[in-house]
């Protein structure tokens, strides 16, 4: 899985460099996120701007990763959602569980 991680302004940023987040790679993503949530209170920004396709497995992974973060008193916010990815979050009403920002810069500034 092609992922870039960095820390900026005290925030962990995970940029998913894949066109698809589906059943073939969502399990690996969950493991990577769990690996980043090593301390309590971590605030993770997921940059999904490269992702143009998400399936139910990908949606489930976002949900569970958010739960993992909350259990550690942290949070995950989403940035850069393409319209069809956003529409899938809305269709399944998962959008209400996340703070969603148009761009990574917006998430850093306001998230």
């Amino acid at each position: 899985m092609n992922i870039a991680t960095e820390t900026r302004e005290g925030r962990s940023i995970l940029a998913l460099r894949e066109e698809r987040l589906d059943s073939s790679n969502s399990g690996e993503l969950r493991s990577i996120i769990l690996g980043l949530l090593t301390a309590d209170g971590q605030r993770l920004i997921m940059d999904l701007s490269a992702v143009r396709f998400i399936d139910s497995s990908g949606l489930g992974t976002l949900l569970n990763s958010s739960k993992d973060a909350h259990q550690r008193s942290g949070s995950i916010v989403l940035a850069g959602l393409q319209p069809r990815v956003q529409s899938m979050l809305e269709l399944t009403r998962l959008n209400v569980l996340f703070d969603i920002f148009p761009t990574l810069e917006d998430a850093l500034a306001k998230g």
Binding site: S56, G60, L63, N64
Partner: peptide, 13 residues
Amino acid sequence: LEEPSERGRGIFL
């Protein structure tokens, strides 16, 4: 959808 779990959305979609 109000109490979401990881799985179970495939057939729904």
